[in-house]
């Protein structure tokens, strides 16, 4: 565990807390993509199946359970409690393509052919593109609430910090080698490129995030 990794994890936790705050404070999930949240739940469930077979640390297990349960709770809020506020007409990204993309790569790039390894690889590729429905929704609506933009920023920051952690570990831990994780992680961070730019620009002006249409 190094500082970059810890800050990355914390940023991931913060992003989820921000999303929950947004939904609970405004009692609405307007501007939030249900499809992205659904994909994250699939990512966490397929990746963290190893909870039942390997124990790494208490920290690791607690975080895994926290990610699965909070994302399931967010989906519950969006699907049942605040369903009437869900902006279905703007959440139109076709996630079948993302699932097909991740499934195809999961069969080509696993470290070894076992059920857990293939699912783990699938989760990495799916996570790398899972933000796309949310970014697409933001693009079509043009702007979003502050909390929503902070949420997306914290989520992007998490992967960016992980990338720094990989460079750090690669240079300090002999034999540290995770090519699929790295490539999927860099793809994921790159998808935030445009968003980061407009987010920082909007912070500087002290205004809401507004995207050019």
């Amino acid at each position: 565990m190094n500082l970059f990794r810890l800050c990355g994890d914390l940023s991931h936790v913060v992003s989820i807390v921000l999303l929950l705050l947004k939904i609970r404070a405004t009692r609405s999930c307007v501007g939030i993509s249900l499809k992205t949240q659904f994909l994250y739940l699939v990512v966490f469930v397929t990746r963290y199946l190893d909870l039942f077979v390997t124990f790494i640390s208490l920290y690791n297990s607690v975080m895994k359970v926290a990610f699965i349960s909070t994302t399931a709770y967010i989906l519950y809020l969006m699907f049942f409690k605040f369903k009437h506020t869900y902006d279905k007409d703007h959440d139109t990204f076709r996630i079948q393509f993302l699932i097909a993309f991740a499934a195809a790569l999961a069969f080509v790039t696993p470290h070894r052919y076992s059920l857990l390894e293939v699912l783990w690889t699938f989760s990495l590729w799916l996570e790398s593109v899972a933000i796309l429905p949310q970014l697409y929704m933001l693009q079509t609506t043009g702007e979003c609430e502050n909390l929503t933009s902070h949420y997306i920023f914290a989520l992007g920051l998490y992967r960016a910090l992980y990338a720094v952690n990989w460079v750090y570990r690669y240079s300090t831990e002999p034999g540290y080698w995770q090519p699929v994780t790295w490539i999927a992680g860099i793809l994921q961070t790159a998808l935030y490129g445009d968003f980061f730019y407009y987010y920082v620009a909007s912070r500087r002006r002290g205004k809401r995030l507004k995207l050019p249409t």
Partner: peptide, 10 residues
């Protein structure tokens, strides 16, 4: 089998 590090990241 190629070497790959234990999956200790989240």
């Amino acid at each position: 089998d190629s070497i790959e590090t234990e999956k200790d990241e989240l």
